[in-house]
Computed example of a mutant assay.
Amino acid sequence: MADPTVTVNEMKIREVDFNPEFISRMIPRIEWKALYEAALSLDVVGNLSPELITDYEKDEDFLKEAHRVLMEVEVIKGFLICPESGRKFPIENGIPNMLLNEGEVGDGPAQSEALQEDDSMQ
């Protein structure tokens, strides 16, 4: 199994009415591999397919599994973990905080330009 992308301190499973049209419209907007890995991390993968299947719009079982993971699993408290940097972003009351603290911001081009502007203003 891959490194976890989500760690959970508190999670809820709640029943939500199944809307196949809504789920069909959401799927193209989802990074499927990331969804599957998150479901693995949460131990809620069930029968969710590790690969996005062709003609998923016509496969009600596939849509129901996608619906279950997308709509019925709610992380109340925990962390999202960046697979590239390992940085942890807290989740409180079901809301992830993806803001970086000032000391965590990388030294990319935008950061360097902002620092140069600050220096020239002094």
Rank of each mutant, 00 (worst) to 15 (best):
M1W: 11
M1A: 14
M1E: 14
A2H: 06
A2W: 02
A2T: 06
A2N: 08
A2P: 03
V6S: 05
V8W: 02
N9P: 00
N9W: 00
E10P: 00
M11H: 03
M11P: 01
K12V: 09
I13Q: 12
I13P: 02
I13S: 10
R14T: 13
R14H: 13
E15I: 10
F18A: 03
F18E: 02
F18W: 02
P20W: 03
E21N: 13
E21P: 02
F22I: 09
F22C: 05
I23Q: 01
I23R: 01
I23A: 01
S24F: 04
R25N: 12
M26D: 10
I27Q: 08
P28T: 02
R29M: 15
R29A: 15
R29C: 14
I30N: 00
I30Y: 01
I30W: 01
E31R: 15
K33C: 11
K33M: 13
K33S: 15
A34D: 10
Y36E: 05
E37Y: 06
E37V: 01
A38M: 15
A38S: 15
A38E: 12
L40R: 12
L40S: 06
L40I: 10
D43K: 15
D43R: 15
D43N: 15
V44M: 11
G46T: 06
G46C: 06
N47C: 11
N47Y: 13
N47R: 15
L48C: 09
P50L: 06
P50C: 06
E51Y: 13
L52E: 09
I53N: 08
D55S: 11
Y56I: 04
Y56V: 02
Y56Q: 03
E60W: 07
F62H: 10
K64A: 01
A66S: 05
H67F: 06
H67T: 04
R68W: 04
R68Q: 07
V69E: 04
V69D: 04
V69K: 03
V69A: 05
L70D: 07
M71P: 07
E72Y: 09
E74M: 14
V75Y: 00
V75I: 12
I76E: 03
I76L: 09
K77Q: 09
I81V: 07
C82H: 11
P83T: 05
G86W: 08
G86T: 09
G86A: 09
K88V: 03
K88N: 08
F89Y: 13
F89W: 01
F89N: 01
P90I: 04
E92D: 10
E92P: 04
N93L: 12
G94T: 08
G94Y: 07
I95G: 06
P96Q: 03
P96H: 02
N97F: 04
M98E: 02
L99C: 05
L99R: 08
L100Q: 10
N101D: 13
N101I: 02
E102T: 13
G103S: 11
G103Y: 07
E104W: 03
E104G: 01
V105G: 05
V105W: 06
G106A: 13
D107Q: 13
G108R: 11
A110I: 12
A110P: 00
A110H: 09
Q111W: 09
Q111P: 00
E113D: 12
E113G: 05
L115A: 04
Q116C: 05
Q116N: 11
Q116M: 12
E117L: 14
D118H: 11
D119Q: 11
M121R: 15
